[in-house]
Amino acid sequence: MAYSDKVIDHYKNPRNVGSFSKSEQGVGTGIVGAPECGDVMKLQIKVNEKTEVIEEARFKTFGCGSAIASSSLITEWVKGKSIEEALAIKNTEIVSELSLPPVKIHCSVLAEDAIKAAIADYKKKTDQAGNETHGHHRDQ
């Protein structure tokens, strides 16, 4: 299958590969998978808790070129965005930016799911931290 130049570029020079410590302050982790092909993606964001702006993002994707390119691209996009703005990113934007063929659309869905899962994880962590400072300690 022919990949577009942009997919090849992200695949050969993926941006923001790596990981943060899950327990680090302000870090949200999303782990998702594409059951159709077995691809697995871990995407993490580091959020400034005062401004709720995503300052950094990292990913590790084990899968095809399109899945790697989709996650590389979305980590570029979310940097500097508020978490609300990042939640608004649609997989279709990734599809058109990378010219993904129909059989690879699920890769872009995976990237969208991953960022949503990372934000949900961040929110859960900050809610829990907030509750703890107010004396409502939750069992983990």
């Binding site: 998978g33 059951p35 092909c37 077995g38 697995v40 084990f62």
Partner: peptide, 11 residues
Amino acid sequence: LLHHRSYLTTT
């Protein structure tokens, strides 16, 4: 079960 199998297969 299919999904689990598919993830295991990739790894």
